[in-house]
Amino acid sequence: MVKVFALILFFITVLHAVNDQEILKRADSFLKSSSKSNQFRAYNDYKNLYLRALLNGDKKLKHSALKGIISSGHKLHIDVKRYEQEYKHLSPASRKNYKAKKTLKSHLHIN
Score class of each variant (00 low, 15 high):
46 Y>V: 04
3 K>A: 05
77 H>L: 07
50 Y>V: 04
65 A>L: 13
27 A>H: 10
48 N>R: 13
69 I>T: 12
105 K>H: 02
5 F>E: 08
71 S>I: 06
80 V>F: 04
82 R>C: 02
38 N>K: 14
36 K>N: 11
86 E>W: 01
45 D>A: 11
21 Q>E: 15
83 Y>Q: 15
100 A>T: 13
90 L>C: 06
53 A>L: 03
30 F>K: 11
111 N>A: 00
6 A>L: 15
15 L>S: 11
41 R>W: 00
29 S>K: 13
51 L>E: 13
48 N>F: 13
8 I>E: 04
65 A>I: 12
78 I>V: 14
26 R>V: 02
69 I>E: 13
95 R>W: 00
61 L>I: 11
35 S>A: 14
71 S>F: 05
61 L>T: 06
106 S>Y: 12
11 F>P: 00
29 S>G: 06
75 K>G: 01
60 K>N: 14
103 T>H: 10
71 S>P: 05
2 V>E: 15
111 N>P: 00
59 K>Y: 05
20 D>M: 02
26 R>S: 14
79 D>Y: 08
88 K>V: 01
84 E>G: 02
37 S>N: 14
86 E>Q: 04
62 K>S: 09
57 G>N: 15
22 E>C: 07
111 N>L: 03
100 A>L: 12
76 L>W: 01
67 K>R: 15
93 A>I: 09
39 Q>K: 15
6 A>T: 03
41 R>T: 03
43 Y>R: 02
80 V>A: 02
78 I>L: 08
5 F>M: 06
107 H>S: 02
71 S>H: 09
64 S>I: 10
76 L>H: 02
59 K>R: 09
87 Y>P: 08
66 L>W: 12
89 H>N: 00
7 L>R: 08
74 H>A: 08
93 A>M: 05
70 I>E: 06
59 K>S: 12
68 G>S: 11
12 I>Y: 02
100 A>Q: 14
84 E>F: 00
39 Q>E: 12
62 K>F: 08
54 L>R: 13
48 N>V: 11
42 A>C: 07
108 L>Q: 02
61 L>W: 12
94 S>E: 10
29 S>R: 14
43 Y>S: 00
86 E>P: 03
21 Q>D: 10
93 A>V: 05
52 R>D: 10
79 D>V: 09
54 L>N: 05
13 T>Y: 15
7 L>E: 10
52 R>L: 12
105 K>V: 02
97 N>G: 07
28 D>V: 13
90 L>M: 15
30 F>E: 11
34 S>V: 08
15 L>T: 08
17 A>Q: 09
34 S>W: 08
79 D>C: 03
21 Q>M: 10
62 K>L: 13
89 H>I: 05
40 F>G: 01
77 H>Y: 03
44 N>I: 01
108 L>M: 09
14 V>Y: 10
47 K>V: 13
100 A>C: 05
9 L>Y: 13
82 R>S: 09
68 G>R: 11
7 L>C: 04
95 R>C: 00
27 A>E: 05
18 V>G: 04
2 V>R: 14
73 G>L: 10
63 H>A: 12
2 V>F: 12
53 A>Y: 11
33 S>G: 08
53 A>K: 05
90 L>I: 15
107 H>A: 04
64 S>H: 14
13 T>N: 02
2 V>Y: 13
32 K>N: 07
59 K>F: 03
